[in-house]
């Protein structure tokens, strides 16, 4: 079984983002970039499935500028076998990414696609289910456990009230939640090995996908700041303050 994993290059999740003064977006120049953490979990799960003999090959895909090659090399160092970059300078929105991934899926014919449940930049949480819909495949979002048996997939999902278990027919799309696994550390020998693994580059034109954005960003601004609070000395002062604010009886 071949597994395809989509990975996105985003601002590192430890970086405190700054909004550009002109309101056009968030500053990304000279900012540390990394693989979206949920995508890293998806790659780890795919590699584990190959190591346990369930999968035969793990192909990682990214879409965006040439620098996404770094993200793909990280995925290869985590243990993926091969990478595909859909290279474009265009602003990519989830629907477009889903269409690009669909085109790659039609070429690669995977049985399972793993994605992160959301990217930590746009927090959209759309690409996985959109891809599933475009392909007419089953889906399991927010996965915290995944088992493959025959032509079926059993997935524990983290839902609002607790956990839900779904059974999906393969081929399927699964989006990874935090507790699916803890990704391994990338070792130096594996980084070296990753440099020699195949990385193909294609373009949206080659895949015949129109990348015109559907949403226009009018403005990006800082969220309203909270007014500075104050320290209270003890429980009595706290209770008095809360009472006078009317938040406790």
């Amino acid at each position: 079984m071949k597994i395809l994993v989509s990975v996105k290059r985003v601002v590192d999740y430890n970086v405190k983002v700054r909004v550009r003064a002109d309101g056009s977006g968030v500053e990304t120049a000279n900012v540390r970039m990394s693989m979206n953490p949920f995508d890293e979990i998806a790659v780890e799960e795919a590699v584990r499935l190959r190591e346990s003999g369930v999968a035969t090959e793990v192909v990682v895909v990214s879409a965006g500028a040439a620098q996404c090659q770094d993200t793909l090399r990280t995925a290869l160092a985590l243990g993926a076998d091969r990478a595909v970059l859909v290279e474009t300078g265009a602003e990519l929105q989830p629907l477009t990414v889903a269409k690009l991934l669909k085109a790659v899926c039609q070429r690669e014919q995977p049985k399972l696609v793993l994605c992160g449940k959301q990217a930590t930049d746009d927090d959209a949480s759309q690409t996985g289910p959109m891809l599933a819909a475009l392909l007419g495949w089953s889906q399991a979002t927010f996965a915290s456990k995944l088992t493959v048996s025959g032509d079926r997939l059993t997935v524990a999902r983290e839902v609002d009230g607790g956990l839900e278990t779904v059974e999906c027919l393969l081929p399927a799309i699964v989006t990874a939640d935090l507790r699916l696994n803890v990704p391994r550390y990338v070792t130096l020998p594996n980084i070296m090995k990753a440099k020699r693994k195949p990385l193909d580059t294609v373009t949206p034109e080659f895949l015949q996908v129109d990348v015109t954005p559907r949403l226009k960003t009018i403005q990006v601004c800082e969220p309203p700041a909270r007014a500075a609070g104050r320290r209270v000395a003890d429980v009595a002062e706290l209770v008095a303050a809360l009472s006078s604010r009317g938040v406790i009886a």
Binding site: V11, V17, T120, D123, Q126, I218, C221, P223
Partner: peptide, 30 residues
Amino acid sequence: VAQISEVIGVLGVDTFSRPIYAGNATQTVQ
């Protein structure tokens, strides 16, 4: 069509605000 996720403000019939970067910025999209 595009989907607009986690809308926190309705600014018009086609314009919405939503948090990005874990709420460290607010994006207005049309």
